[in-house]
Amino acid sequence: MLALFARDLALAIRAGGGFGLALAFFLILVTLVPFGVGPLPELLSRIAPGILWVGALLASLLSLDRIFALDREDGSLDLLATAPIPLEAVALAKAAAHWVTTGLPLTLAAPVLGVLLNLPAPGHLWLLVSLALGTPALSMIGTFGAALTVGLKRGGLLLSLLVLPLYVPTLIFGAEAVARGVAGQDATTPLLLQGAITAGALAILPFAAAAALRINLR
């Protein structure tokens, strides 16, 4: 399992692997928003938590279709399925590698990008915490969606349609935690709920993803 995780990281970092793609997308998206809504500091700081969370969510969506599709194309997925490692562990390792290459950089970059949107001072910390709690769920749910669509040619669009509704609870609680943090209110409840979603996704979805893979490999 560690070998698979390490291989996926190496693949992501080498040429054409897509590492940094999500981060660059996030950066561009966040820079575009002030052009669209106008440079009003009050307006920007009001919408900053939502924009940053939606941006992170869309950015992590970008590389989802690579999770299994490339392995399917070159035959690795068949060989992984016949390897001693269970497919549940394959799904978990893939989700972990996806998180390290997209979720983690997004989490670390978001507070810096918050400055561009005039996010008020205590909000940066809450943004960091809520993204750190929420992005693993995005990667795990996305891995499940990728497993569902792995047999389809150009399944990327269908994957987005399947996965985005499942991202809604994470988005609501994530943006709410940041908004409450900015307003100086107690953000414990949305953070706890968000942690619960992440924990639930990590507990259940590897099995669902493995079941979807088994059906798609037939």
Binding site: R7, L11, D78, T82, A83
Partner: peptide
């Protein structure tokens, strides 16, 4: 669990070297 399957596709990653590709499968097994 006793069978090794070699399909039409070789399951090689183009950006990894020959040794890295083989080492990965060795580690998996």
């Amino acid at each position: 669990e006793a069978l090794a399957y070699a399909a039409h596709a070789d399951g090689l990653k183009p950006t990894l070297t020959v040794a890295e590709n083989l080492s990965f499968w060795a580690a998996m097994f």
